[in-house]
Design a protein around this nucleic acid. Structure first.
Lengths: 155, 155
DNA sequence: GATGTTCCGGTCAATTTCATCCATCGGGCG
DNA sequence: CGCCCGATGGATGAAATTGACCGGAACATC
C-alpha cells in the first residue's frame, strides 16, 4: 500500500471505467504493471467490488433520513440488527457512543414511506425505546470516496 | 424506468464488473438491448459513475464518526459548507431538521486525527456554536445500494 | 568485502475476450 | 397500410489477459 497504490485507489473511486491505459498514466507505470496492482488490490480485499453509482433522486429515493434509536439492552438487540440488515431502505446502521444506541441512514421515496417505516419497521421492533428523526433538508456533500490514508510504512 | 431498468440498476450496484452477457440474463433481454438500456441510464443521469468500492479499514480509515453541528445563521454558513466540501474526510454533509443544523459523516485514520479534525477544521470555522460527536462502535450495515423505488409510471 | 543466486516487480509482445457499431427483422400504433 | 421503437445477429475495433524477458535488491556463499 504505497504511494502508487493510493493514487490508483483514489482514481478508481473517482472513475472505475477509465480503463487501464489512463490509469497507468496517473500511476506512472505500464499498463500490465498497473493491471497487476489493481488485481492485487482486489485480492487483498482493498477493492471490494465494482459498482454503478446511482443518482438517488433519479433512482426514486429523494428522501434522506438519519434516525437515532435507543434499544433496550438484551437479546432483542440481535433481532434488531438482523431486521436492519434485511431492510433495503436502511443503507447504514451503526452502534454509536452517547445517549443513543444506533444511528441509521435511510433512503425512502416520500414521507408516507417514512411514516410506514417508522411505525411498521422501527417502532414495531421489540426493545426500541426511543426514536429521533433527522430529516435531510439539503445535501451539501455526499460521496463514497474514501480519503485513503498515507498509511503506515509496513505491509 | 420500468421493471427491467430497476433490475438492471440493482444488479449494476451489486456488481458492475459482471459484463453485459450476465446482465442480459437477469434483465431477460439480449446483450445489445441490455447495452442500450445501460447507455440510456447513463445518459439520463441515473447512473452517475462507475466506481471501485473500497474496504474502509483496508484503505486506512477505520474510524467512523457522525458529527452534529449547530451553525449560527448568517453568511458564515456558505463558508462552512464550502469548507466541508473541501475536506476529503467529510464523506457527507447534510442540513437537517431539529435542534442541530448539520450532520456530517466523517472517516478518519485514528483518534488523534479526529481530535485534529474537531479542533482545526470544525471548531475553527466561524459560526460553529455546538458540536456533538457520535463515534461508531460497530457497523451493523453499510451499503451504497439504493433501494430503487417501484417508481411512478410516468417518465 | 566481493560475487553469485534467488526473488520480486516492471516492461514488452502476442493472444483472446469483450464491447461497440451497423444492418436487419418483428411488433405496436397511428 | 406505413411508420417508429425495440430486439437480434454479425463484423469491427479496442481493451484486458497471459506469457516470457529484463533489471534491481536481498541474502547467502566464497
Amino acid at each position: 500500500m504505497d504511494e502508487i497504490d493510493r493514487n490508483i485507489t483514489v482514481a478508481l473511486q473517482l472513475d472505475g471505467s477509465a480503463g487501464l491505459a489512463e490509469l497507468a498514466k496517473v500511476a506512472g507505470l505500464s499498463v500490465s504493471a498497473t493491471a497487476e496492482r489493481v488485481k492485487r488490490l482486489e485480492e487483498r480485499g482493498v477493492i471490494r467490488a465494482w459498482r454503478a453509482d446511482l443518482d438517488p433522486v433519479a433512482a426514486g429515493c429523494p428522501l434522506l433520513v438519519h434516525i437515532l434509536v435507543t434499544v433496550a439492552p438484551g437479546k432483542d438487540e440481535a433481532a434488531f440488527r438482523k431486521a436492519m440488515r434485511r431492510q433495503a431502505a436502511v443503507l447504514e446502521c451503526h452502534a454509536i457512543t452517547g445517549d443513543w444506541t444506533y444511528l441509521l441512514k435511510v433512503r425512502l421515496a416520500d414521507l408516507p414511506a417514512l411514516d410506514a417505516f417508522l411505525n411498521d419497521e422501527l417502532r414495531a421492533q421489540s426493545g426500541v425505546q426511543r426514536v429521533g428523526t433527522l430529516l435531510a433538508i439539503a445535501t451539501v456533500k455526499e460521496t463514497s470516496i474514501l480519503p485513503v490514508a498515507p498509511a503506515d510504512p509496513e505491509e
